[in-house]
Design a protein around this nucleic acid. Structure first.
Lengths: 203, 203
DNA sequence: TAGGTTATTGACCATGCAGTCAGACACGGC
DNA sequence: GCCGTGTCTGACTGCATGGTCAATAACCTA
């Protein structure tokens, strides 16, 4: 039997194995892409029998979701901290952008794994398991920053939804470039984006 | 035997079948996603035997590439026309953005198919067949527009590469939204983007 | 209408997949 | 030493996949 949220459930071995399998799955996805990350390959990387995965996780679906939770936890708070430390709303937007790019640069593998899962992981019905509608939670905090800035009169009037999507898209576009060109100057890239969106949003 | 570029090669039946199979493949990808678009399903949709696909195309790989070529041809010129009709460089950028969004709205299915292929189609090595490095040709014309604008003094100094990527990302982000919310007001969305990037780029 | 080319079928193959399971191992309490 | 529970293995099933192929149908020309 395995625990649901796994924070404290299960025996010592239970938790250790789950962590090991999740790590192996993450590594396999990063190294070979989601499409090639079969349970056979994941088990091989972890140097365990394939059956043990089914002992600790009910299905491949459950494993993948565990990888997402594991990888996602902590990312949001890290960026939120940077944003909240900023004084005015213009600076908050800048902090948001910079916080995101720094996170991308520091956690490229994890971000790549999440990207693989989000764009390839499909349910039985063939639809993406993590589609646009569920990514609402990613855009929402950014929209909140924009709204606050507008209400304070520091940012001009614009469609917050469109602007938030645009900024998110600009940030998300960095990952594949970083993947292709690992020595990309993320700081300079951030400066450009901050400049661009400051001009685009300020009153 | 089948032709390579297929414009005029082969018999009448040859060309008709190829077109039919490409169409069926495109429909299947649009309806069920790339991952589920197996040759069996494609053949079923076209109401032909699976073997006939291998008679006209050497492999699934070749079929998919034919879909890309088929779908891609014409898109570039359509947008280029709109861009070249614009007077000054600021207007050119606006025309580029509007041209792209109009194209997205008018050809959602085709764009969705391309998107499916670009994000899921992998070679034997497990790497994306159409990755970031091969999408250079998409960003290049936009960079040219930006460069011309800067040299004419109409656009401020900025990193053209970053700006081009950002604009492309903003445009590409529309597709999944359109998919999720088919009645999205693309005209208004285009206005917002034009406003945003005009402010961001003008001298 | 005969004969050769072109086009098509459906059965077949090897492979890889997610998932199952009977049995074996480890190990602590009795 | 033995038992029971928790853990693990490796062989197995059933299925879908991309791809092959011999037989055959459709077609065109002579």
């Amino acid at each position: 039997m395995q625990s649901d949220t796994a924070k404290e459930g299960g025996t010592f071995i239970e938790r250790a194995r789950r962590a090991q399998i999740v790590a192996a799955a993450s590594e396999t996805i990063a190294a070979e892409g989601f499409a090639r990350a079969s349970l056979t390959r994941i088990a091989a990387r972890a140097q365990i029998s394939k059956g043990v995965i089914f002992y600790h996780f009910g299905s491949k679906d459950e494993l993948v979701r565990a990888v997402v939770v594991e990888t996602y936890t902590g990312a949001g708070t890290e960026i939120a901290k940077a944003v909240e430390a900023a004084p005015d709303h213009g600076a908050r937007l800048a902090a948001y952008i910079r916080g995101n790019l720094v996170f991308l640069a520091d956690h490229r593998t994890e971000v790549q794994v999440l990207n693989e899962i989000f764009t390839s992981f499909r349910g039985e019905d063939g639809r993406l398991a993590y589609d646009e509608s569920q990514l609402e939670s990613v855009v929402a905090p950014l929209e909140a920053v924009l709204r606050a800035g507008q209400e304070a009169g520091e940012l001009r009037a614009f469609d917050r939804r469109v602007m938030a999507r645009t900024i998110r898209a600009a940030i998300d576009a960095v990952t594949p470039q970083l993947n292709l060109q690992p020595d990309l100057d993320v700081g300079a890239y951030a400066d450009e984006l901050v400049d661009t969106f400051t001009r685009a949003t300020c009153a």
